[in-house]
Design a protein around this nucleic acid. Structure first.
Lengths: 157, 157
DNA sequence: CCTTATCGGGACCATCACGGTCTGGTACTT
DNA sequence: AAGTACCAGACCGTGATGGTCCCGATAAGG
């Protein structure tokens, strides 16, 4: 598996915040309930998002979370990286400071791993998909496919 | 991490076989030694490759493994899938028989997860990268960057 | 035939990340 | 001051991963 539930839950959280863009801050407990996710786990995830500047928090009564910037300026690559750390298709695969990837096996002295070529391409594909998708797109997608949870449909028609 | 060492080792094994294409069968122990991989672990991996028809085996003395078909007809998607199973970026994400992906959360009744759109794109990127790379490419890449392990270079001019 | 080299496959196991909980703060609003 | 909500960390059960070990089947060679 490429991503764990961290990314899944975290993205769901971001989408939820995106749907309330411009309104009052959204409490975590509200998100936990509507998405049926464990609250205490969400707290960990939202902390990562906050440290990455992707959400702003408002403490105190009637506090909650808000997007750190407009949804259409948030690439999903940022979100996923904040949640999961560096994206790498393989253990022995970490970008050095300059951005080039290096594989731990290469220092073996003999030849560069042939696999490097493959994993580089895979990583490129993933990164491209993630950076090419904005939170705004997901919010829109979500709104289209959400016929109002419990009550009658209000937005549609 | 998207892939485990299964894929890494397995691909290395395939590349090694690809470099000996046309010759006598290669014993696993030879591969294990030249790639410095645990033999008993390789045995498990090669079994998966054999069941997928990607390698042929020859038992008995002077036996070993050979590619099941020409290297340029082997997509790395086949190799990786044989080793790792179905490729999915996320736990709750499995293609149904028709090829469409479905998410376990969708049966919740309310709305389709917005994340589905994202993971679908990611998976597309990965699949495209893997199926667009052939074993022959990796073998060539490997030969270029391999200045003959211990002895002097023989293949290069 | 018997030995040896090699594949074939199952049982077994240690480690570690993952997913999740719990507890106790700390800051802010009313 | 009291309540609400964020924040940080310790803690833990489960399961996949990565790997070993052993024994059986098979084929070549002497």
């Amino acid at each position: 598996m490429l991503f764990s539930t961290r990314a899944e839950y975290g993205v769901r959280l971001m989408v939820e915040l995106g749907r309330q863009e411009g309104g009052t801050p959204v409490a975590l407990s509200a998100v936990a309930e509507s998405e049926r996710l464990p609250l205490s786990y969400l707290e960990h995830l939202v902390a990562k998002l906050r440290r990455a500047g992707l959400v702003d928090s408002q403490r105190g009564a009637h506090g909650g979370y808000r997007l750190g910037r407009p949804a259409d300026e948030i690439q999903m690559l940022d979100v996923v990286q904040a949640l999961e750390g560096t994206i790498a298709p393989m253990e022995c695969f970490h970008p050095d400071p300059e951005g080039k990837v290096s594989c731990s096996h290469e220092s073996d002295g003999d030849h560069a791993c042939a696999t490097k070529l493959l994993w580089t391409r895979v990583q490129g594909g993933v990164t491209k998909a993630l950076s090419g998708t904005t939170l705004a797109e997901l919010v829109e997608f979500s709104d289209q496919h959400a016929p109002a949870p419990g009550q009658a449909a209000a937005t549609a028609a």
